[in-house]
Nucleic acid binder design. Structure first.
Lengths: 344, 344
DNA sequence: TTGAAAGCGCTAACAC
DNA sequence: GTGTTAGCGCTTTCAA
């Protein structure tokens, strides 16, 4: 063996089939006109040998890479896999392939991941959020391919942006709370610096409440991972120190569900005197004892649209390459009815 | 502009710094001896220009690719992101980068994804499960890099395998059920053909039960996505048609949690006359009204070990390149105590 | 310590 | 319809 490595090359297929490398290449890419008989010979040889093309060489020669870089903070938070599912769904109908990287909510890690991915010269970049380091923004601005910032539109996109406005979603929840005459609202959120979307939701909520003359009477943040237990803990603690609150807004459905379970156990009048709301509309949670009020943040669609933008099949309606999706408020069973609404 | 594309090349950096391309390359890779002054000039020029190296050309020239292909059935099922977290955690300490692909539990899609990924000549492959099409197995066997099949060891690995034995995990649950004198067990599982691990758990469970002379009195499978609602539905239906069952085994914690909530609402004697168990030990669910009996399937560790195998830092104890992790049974509060056990 | 030449495996462009 | 030639941007190798 004098071969540099164990991989087969076009040349091997060429020799095995008695067809020139170039024609072999054409067959394997379904390009140009190749005689049916030649094609057969080539495919047969390739199959027999178990030839796997070398995309690296192909990409270098053609200056085309069918990879789309997708950068998310985390895969453990379900919202990101759900967005990715939307991306994959759309890209599956194209030649493009997603390459996924996680940053752990760390801007420096994001910067490194982007650099690494851009050095593979992808055909597009999808990145969660609008907040990035200056260096990251510079890379994105200069990478020469479409860049879509997803799951948020509150800010200044480098190129395109797709998602809901978390600020407005929070604002809407605030108006719904106010309309239902809740008056002493507490916010149970996250301590994570990197979670800009949760922060924006809270800001929107606070604005709506303050416009309605309602106070946020208490606020609590946790660090670490979201789960039922965290929602329980926070709720226990919060109700202990502010027993007169009448509404609990959780920035996340999972902690909200934990809080809901806790409140039900304690026999609190959930959906009546005490209102509860989460955020994200995780379908996983359908089937809780009560449907938690929540907001569908439309992350799957965000992924779909982002993928369409990258693949060039999206038509922008506005000229600023921003696609604002409309979040859906779902009152569930944990907020009292609007005053004046009919009751069955 | 006569440039083919907008990307900067080593040559640009070379010209800007007045240093040969070769030396620029050395500086940018921290290779060989370069005078401190030269190094400075080069780094300065690269930074000023915003040079991003072209890994495609680099990989072709060096025949080295720092990518690890990771192929999983789904990202929506939390077990896979959790395994991926383990992979990422370990690879973060190396030069290697994971590239993730999802197959949607479809062997044909898996085959295509593997082919696609292998054509990028990764340094290693991590793939979930031991069941693959013949073509997939052939590709894996011949790809010339380490291949780790994760999250299962019941079968014949192509190369290395890391994970728990789902059969034995199921068997263990069965012995725990038998030891607690439950006698009429029902299994609530999945219809998905591709979910071999769930199937193996059920088989192990059935074996343990039959050895103990216990019948599986009913079985039910759902299709589609796992969530609380599915657990509720199945439980409702099952208890209607087999009201005398005394144990419900769910192949999945999420459906198990739905069932648990349902049974509690109905006032059933959960943890006493009626036993319940799920599988996977999702920490997200800590904080349910009762801790659901479950089994930790150690998927994060599986990812970690797989990544260590790929990066060459794992030392095998046996010679068959199989690492069997031991699942942990967690009785929670939904199974009655062992007979003869002390009660507080 | 630095540079020049050759070539990685493929495809674009053009010739036949 | 098929083959030939050149070269993608980098790294390996060897020479200075």
């Amino acid at each position: 063996m004098t071969r540099r490595n164990q991989h087969l090359t076009l040349r091997d297929v060429s020799e095995a089939s008695g067809v020139s490398e170039m024609t072999v290449s054409r067959v394997l890419r379904n390009r140009g006109d190749v005689a049916a008989k030649t094609r057969e010979k080539v495919l047969e040889a390739a199959r027999m040998l178990g030839y796997v093309p070398n995309k690296i060489a192909g990409a270098l020669a053609s200056n085309r890479v069918n990879l789309v870089a997708v950068v998310v903070p985390s895969l453990s938070n379900l919202v990101f896999p759900e967005m990715l599912a939307g991306v994959q769904e759309v890209l599956d109908g194209t030649e493009l392939q997603p390459v996924i990287g996680a940053t752990n909510y760390d801007p420096a890690k994001e910067e490194r991941t982007l650099f690494e991915m851009l050095s593979w010269r992808p055909s597009g970049v999808i990145v969660a959020g609008l907040e990035h380091s200056d260096a990251s923004r510079a890379m994105l601005a200069n990478c020469g391919v479409p860049v879509v910032e997803v799951m948020d539109v509150d800010g200044d996109p480098v190129d395109a942006a797709v998602g809901i406005s978390h600020w407005r979603a929070g604002y809407q929840v605030g108006t719904e709370i106010a309309a239902r005459r809740y008056e002493r609202v507490a916010v149970l959120g996250t301590k994570m610096d990197g979670d800009h979307r949760a922060r924006k939701r809270i800001e929107g909520l606070e604005r709506a409440l303050s416009e309605a003359g309602i106070a946020v009477v208490d606020q609590m943040a946790y660090s670490g991972w979201s789960g039922f237990a965290k929602g329980r803990e926070m709720t226990t603690e919060l109700l202990a120190r502010a027993p007169d609150v009448d509404f609990l807004f959780y920035t996340n459905d999972l902690t909200g569900a934990g809080g809901l379970l806790y409140c039900l156990e304690k026999g609190l009048d959930v959906g009546g005197a005490l209102g509860l709301a989460g955020f994200n509309a995780f379908s996983l949670l359908d089937g809780l004892p009560r449907r938690l009020a929540t907001v569908d943040s439309r992350r799957r669609e965000a992924g779909q649209v982002a993928a369409r933008i990258i693949s060039g099949t999206h038509v922008f309606e506005t000229e600023d390459r921003r696609v604002e999706l409309v979040p859906t408020f779902l009152p569930g069973d944990t907020m009292r009815p609007l005053p004046g609404a009919e009751t069955g």
